[in-house]
Design a binder for these strands. Structure first.
Lengths: 217, 217
DNA sequence: TGTACATCAGTGAACGCGCGTTCACTGATGTAC
DNA sequence: TGTACATCAGTGAACGCGCGTTCACTGATGTAC
């Protein structure tokens, strides 16, 4: 994208300013990770970035603007994940790609969870900008998943009772929520790899309807 | 439970006070639904409940205490849902019970989503009390789901690659997140009943491994 | 059946902090010649 | 190769609001006789 960064007054900004802006974003992410949205403050962000509060307002009209900017960078990291779903999984061997997808998505999530949680929260709360940010991000993967379901139904492997889009949304929901929830699951003695294997199996089974090799215990 | 309600100073409180406390909780829930956690204020709650701010502090040490109290009442409404999972689904006919479960869970969720979202948010953020509230609630259903997976594996219908607890958690995650997300899904032209049918199919398939009747399109 | 007293429940008004936000300013960097 | 000037970037200090929280108080209800 060839868009130049602007200050809040509309000026195009130079290198030094871009660096400052980035430091502010980094600090925002740090604080989001450490303390969560409920305790996020402009004053703290500025201090952590080694800048005066007034500086923050040169680049962001308010906290939401900064969080939205972080959402955009998260989106950039989501784009490559499409590769794992495209072309669609179509044979038992493709479970390897499902496995790789789960792994990659897990990493994506652990890089960006702090931002994604807020984005989802604000989107759920009805904020238009966050809604749109979420939609753009989700549709990327959702469309590919839905296409797999449709293909699976045409091949009569996937139940006709699935709505392709709803099924895809369900899978996304599962991935998102579960990664949020990960520490908790881990605490009950389920290893990370067991969790990934489980997700892989459910995903592959639901989207493609292709039987998983090992059905014996 | 025979626990009597206490004021913050430890006194057991009478009927009139119980009613006031309840009005405060009702107002809290209303505001949570309307404006979300980020804008929740003691002053507003008190005003809406027709009380002075000082009154709030007679019954709750802070906002979190009130939200935790609301989480407990949500838990009460979750208990009956166990019926739908117990005894375990074991034949194709049990898909009716899965369907009823999804329906009931959807209603449970739409009654309590505002509180559950905050509970999850705070639990994810590491708050001990909210963690415990969430665990107690989730384990109720999680245990039954995990048992079904184990049974399905013993009958060699469910892939051995599933970890029973992780699979159950994945299903819970899917339900929770997707209901949050419902308006969005609806907006893309998926009807509520199509969504429920999809969830029912995925749930039943994943937990029991029993093939769904209609695999043709 | 009324009066005095004890306890319970609720509040007005204020204090004070902390945070968002702004404005007039200073300092840094680039450019012309 | 230095000096003057323009533009860019950053800030100190303050204002003011809004909210959490408290305390000494008032009003309501129950109880004894």
């Amino acid at each position: 994208m060839a868009d130049e960064l602007l200050a809040t007054d509309g000026r195009v900004i130079g290198e030094r300013a871009i660096a400052t802006r980035q430091r502010l974003l980094d600090a925002t992410l740090d604080l989001l990770r450490r303390d969560g949205v409920l305790d996020l403050k402009v004053v703290d962000i500025s201090r952590d970035a080694g800048a005066a509060p007034a500086t923050f307002y040169q680049y962001f009209s308010d906290l939401d603007a900064a969080i939205l900017a972080l959402s955009e960078t998260a989106l950039d990291d989501e784009v490559p994940l499409v590769e794992f779903l495209q072309p669609p999984w179509s044979s038992a061997a493709d479970i390897e790609r499902a496995r790789a997808f789960v792994q990659a998505y897990s990493e994506y999530w652990s890089d960006h969870y702090a931002v994604l949680i807020v984005r989802n929260l604000k989107a759920d709360g009805g904020d238009v900008d966050f809604r749109s940010a979420r939609s753009r991000a989700n549709l990327l993967l959702l469309r590919r998943m839905a296409a797999m379901v449709t293909a699976g139904q045409e091949a009569e492997r996937v139940p006709a009772s699935l709505d392709p889009f709803a099924a895809a949304a369900a899978m996304m929901a599962m991935l998102d929520r579960l990664f949020t929830y990960q520490t908790e699951v881990r605490r009950r003695g389920t290893s990370k790899s067991a969790q990934h294997e489980t997700l892989t199996t459910i995903l592959f089974q639901t989207l493609t309807g292709i039987p998983t090799s090992s059905t014996s215990s």
